[in-house]
Design a protein around this nucleic acid. Structure first.
Lengths: 350, 350
DNA sequence: CCACGGCCTGCAAACGTTTGCAGGAAACTA
DNA sequence: TAGTTTCCTGCAAACGTTTGCAGGCCGTGG
């Protein structure tokens, strides 16, 4: 029913190969012929059949985009940016969601592999070795994980975490908790590493709690651990957890920032609209989406291009952080903190 | 490089057509042969080339899903449900985003038309006639708009709005505002129609404000209009706007629900986590996503199937609504309300 | 006037499947 | 045993493009 290249050829009195070239290699055809062909094509409503084209060229002009959880507001800006970048280059994007599950992730990459020209793997939860193995089946660009031998784009969360800790330390907080993210998250490990070294450098105690689900509920769920640990400030894996945590603390009768300071990471749109407005580490998610598409499309067919992009982050100070306790307000026992720190060990063993 | 049907045929000593049938019509091949073929296929890592299959069958096994704004938390549950439903039937989904722009929407449908088997159009902003025209180019299922002659799935927001108004009226509110959604939204019109008739029936005043952007910012932006209008309760087009509005009211010194009650629509995850927890009309978004996929896939090739599905909604009462003013607290002038009501007229003309 | 390029166009072979048709073997019916 | 059905498999023609190759035409230089 839809017009084919043959219809256009017949109508414009040329061979199909000329019609083909009019679209895929315009400089090879006489301008006069070309415009005639274009007119006929327009008139017949002809659009090249992508399946046929894919069959012979081997390129589908589709890109897979796999995210951990499309409902996490961190991702939509990244997705939108990737989509528009791809569309400009006449590519389309398949977005899919793994429900934070490493197994689902693997299955999706495999399923997508044969019908896309490459996959953008965002915030993967699977192991490095599995990622490397999959990268031999389909071109991969990894976002939010550093990985040698593969093209990656990461946010400099280490710097962000350091700035956050220093900010809290500067406000007088010496007992700080880090609410970790999900198991398998490179970003979470990176934040932990950097926050711990920053805490050590500035002589603050850092209790790590986790791993946790990176959602509001996950943040809410650790509220009582936070309270029991006796910390006066918290750095959360992401804004969603920070918001959930503030909510949970509120229900336990602890106010933010008066009783406890909270810093998030990501700077999602919502963080400007909560009460209190969230102090957070802004990550350039849209830029990451664009960069990932560019990198995937850049190395045409020559694999083995392995650029590594790191995007800067920035501390945005709003209302969820305030001054720490006075010098003589010794809150509570090291015992509980030690218990909380026990979680660090169990986390390190993951 | 990747294994083709021919490699499998050679390795298993049968003709390619037998291999083909092993996958696309298993009942036509001897179980013994079949298992041998499957073993070879597995061994070679063979996966049918979808482009080649699409070329001959005319079906891509892809579905387009167009939403107004992927960053609106209303959509992710719908998207997830649609994706998993589609995946079960060996279909994949292209998700795209129109930025609430009717023109972008049209372009996307056209671009998608040739490379998917059908399009799910969620919360369209374009005109009915344009939708009908596009439905002749590609099978369409419309979500969140009633439209005769096309398969549609809608939520019964009319009932939801009525319940919300009655709830507010039951709490003693007589001056109520409706914060409308974006121009072109069927849902918004439906809510307005139903809310107005419910208000009339229960002898309450209803001021309609809008159209507005359906985001937190959009809700925040109408806070001062709400205050000036002197209403004591508000029904918002969606939860996002309700949350933004509560925030905006708070900044103006009006507390919810003590000074003003607010009801949202959608019951997004976030509405359980704000302060106060949001009273809202729950819409079955996941069910809508599943239903839409089913309807698209149901009418195999016979167009002209035009089932219309309506899903029930439900009022969820939480903490953002409270008792209205006492009988002798006559707040303010009808003049301002009239001004606000003036907006109704301008909106009706849209 | 001939030889030689440079443009442009046509020809035909791919690409990896699906599927109607036909044929052969085995299993059933009469 | 012959005829008929059932089950399975092979054959080959599509599907709508792209692209290397070859040839025709025209203009230029010798």
């Amino acid at each position: 029913m839809p017009a084919t290249i043959r219809d256009v050829a017949r109508e414009s009195g040329v061979h199909i190969s000329t019609v083909s070239r009019t679209f895929s290699a315009p400089h090879l055809v006489n301008p006069e012929t070309r415009s005639r062909v274009l007119a006929c094509a327009e008139h017949l409503g002809y659009r090249p059949n992508r399946a046929a084209r894919a069959l012979i060229t081997g390129r589908t002009h589709n890109i897979g985009l796999i995210v951990a959880d499309i409902a996490n507001p961190f991702f939509p800006p990244l997705i939108k940016a990737a989509e528009s970048q791809a569309r400009q280059r006449d590519y389309h994007i398949f977005v899919t969601d793994t429900n934070e599950d490493a197994n689902v992730e693997e299955g999706l990459v495999r399923a997508l592999a044969k019908q896309v020209d490459g996959v953008l793997l965002c915030s993967p939860r699977m192991s490095n070795s599995l990622i490397e193995q999959l990268s031999r089946e389909v071109p991969l660009v990894v976002v939010n994980r550093q990985l040698t031998g593969l093209p990656t784009v990461v946010m400099d969360v280490a710097q962000g975490a350091r700035l956050a800790i220093e900010h809290l330390r500067g406000l007088g907080h010496t007992r700080i908790a880090l609410v970790a993210g999900p198991r398998g998250s490179w970003t979470s490990r990176e934040i932990r590493r950097s926050a711990m070294s920053a805490a050590r450098a500035s002589e603050a105690d850092l209790a790590v709690i986790g791993p946790n689900q990176p959602t509001e509920t996950g943040g809410m769920a650790v509220a009582d651990q936070i309270v029991r640990s006796g910390v006066t400030a918290v750095l959360a894996y992401n804004d969603l957890m920070a918001i959930g945590l503030i909510e949970g603390l509120h229900e336990l009768g602890h106010r933010c920032p008066q009783d406890i300071s909270v810093v998030g990471i990501d700077d999602i749109a919502l963080s400007r609209l909560t009460r209190p407005k969230l102090t957070t580490v802004a990550t350039p998610t849209a830029a990451a989406g664009r960069a990932a598409v560019d990198m995937l499309l850049a190395h045409g067919d020559d694999r083995r291009t392995t650029a590594q992009v790191t995007l800067q982050t920035e501390l945005v100070i709003r209302d969820s952080t305030g001054p720490g306790p006075g010098p003589h307000s010794h809150a509570d026992p090291g015992g509980v903190v030690a218990a909380a720190l026990g979680d660090v060990a169990s986390y390190a063993k993951e």
